[in-house]
Design a protein around this nucleic acid. Structure first.
Lengths: 247, 247
DNA sequence: CTTGCGCCTGACGTTACGTCAGAGTTTAGG
DNA sequence: CCTAAACTCTGACGTAACGTCAGGCGCAAG
């Protein structure tokens, strides 16, 4: 007639699972984890089976699921688990990339500050570089969903920086050519144009969806936020168009 | 007599900076960014100087500072910026490691699920592995602050997994020795004990603070949460103590 | 004068609990 | 049997950084 499975009350149970009593209350109210019994006076009583469930919850939380998601996952007993995991992995990787870029930004800032220019002005330059990375965000509205995904997967901090350097270098050369009055039909000009389109292809990765998004993005220049400036002048653009033989 | 600096009202200004009007309201109320003027009817009017400040705010937010932190940073005009940046970098790296472990956990889970065992039970094993990583968290209360930092810096997912494998391997061998009734004073036993202390040193990295924390941790076994089980049996522990010549 | 767009100020919603506040319960000790 | 310590309960408000209404003006064009 006596319970043969031991039962624990709140504090004990919480400690065993590495959470707080308040957390248990919370999960109880959410219907995420109901104790297997209450005493007549309203005390919660938990047992081993509850511990298993709580550990599942903790684990899923660790993976980054919200309590809501966990609830539905547990209800359907892991039927769509694979799908959910894939989705979650992508989200986390996205966040990781973001943090990676943030760290890079901080390191650059630290470099500038330490190297003798500890003033705010020096820091402002970095702001611009960082914002260029940030701009990845708002440009997203021009890309289809799958294009955004593909872009995000390739956009590691290193790749971004490399791309920025390549572009900066090429643009500098083109500007020089423009200043020198270089003929857009010359050999050299065509070489520059070739490199230009090479960089564009490198960005799109040959993906048609990304190309389409990029085209939409550039067609809508009038709506760009002001702080995002086309990294090259109109003259440069005209020169490249001419050299590439486009109207 | 007329303003020569253009001023923008909310929507325009927000778009230029890549934020929403609501965000401007929010910053205004927080005193983080007051518009440089209001019209008689209460409309906010922003100017270029405001844009600069807003961009600073956005940048600092990108780096992960809270609005409160940003406010004080801007007030003291970047005097403690270097310190703040260093702190922030550490915090972010911590988060990155966490996310890295989460991704590893997910990948393992996906592997188990995809490899023919799409049931919940298989998933439970992974829970334990993950929780071992999670336990890094609660053990922290035994370590000094600087020890925690040092540990965190070295605790990449790869290192953790390698360590777990090494320990599992060694413990298996010791268990076999115990079963075979191996003499704790034999050559083989001493070799096992040597490997044991080698792994311990590998964990502490020779750091005295970490050693101290570890000692405290093991001295307090009675207060461990139940789900964290010593990975080896009492017999194994006794055997190793004997082989190492300790009481 | 009305229409439509833009602006304003509250005020509540979100996430996963932390932190009191006020009140009852259980238990060991005197 | 009484009491103090230790534990438990249920609200209810706080947090971070805005999003999202809702209700009410302001302003330029037709």
């Amino acid at each position: 007639m006596k319970d043969q499975e031991a039962s624990y009350q709140a504090q004990q149970f919480a400690t065993r699972a590495g959470v707080t009593v308040r957390t248990l209350h919370h999960y109880d109210r959410l219907g995420l984890l109901k104790p297997s019994a209450y005493t007549g006076t309203g005390y919660r009583l938990y047992r081993e089976s509850d511990l298993a469930r709580l550990q599942q919850i903790v684990t899923l939380k660790y993976i980054g699921f919200s309590l809501q998601e966990i609830k539905t996952l547990l209800v359907q007993n892991g039927r769509d688990l694979a799908t959910a995991l894939r989705r979650q992995r992508k989200i986390i990787n996205q966040k990781r990339r973001h943090l990676g870029m943030a760290v890079q930004a901080i390191e650059k800032a630290e470099l500038v500050i330490s190297s003798g220019a500890p003033d705010w002005e020096a820091f402002k330059k970095i702001i611009e570089v960082i914002n260029m990375q940030n701009d990845m965000e708002w440009t997203r509205k021009y890309y289809s969903e799958s294009a955004t995904e593909k872009l995000a997967e390739r956009a590691t901090p290193e790749v971004i920086e490399q791309g920025q350097n390549d572009w900066a270098q090429l643009i500098k050369e083109v500007e020089a050519a423009v200043r020198d009055g270089e003929d857009p039909t010359s050999e050299k000009s065509r070489s520059l144009a070739a490199r230009w389109s090479h960089l564009v292809r490198q960005f799109t990765g040959g993906d048609p969806e990304i190309s389409a998004g990029l085209k939409k993005l550039y067609a809508d220049q009038s709506n760009w936020p002001a702080h995002f400036q086309k990294p090259y002048s109109d003259e440069v653009e005209a020169f490249i168009c001419a050299a590439a033989g486009k109207k």
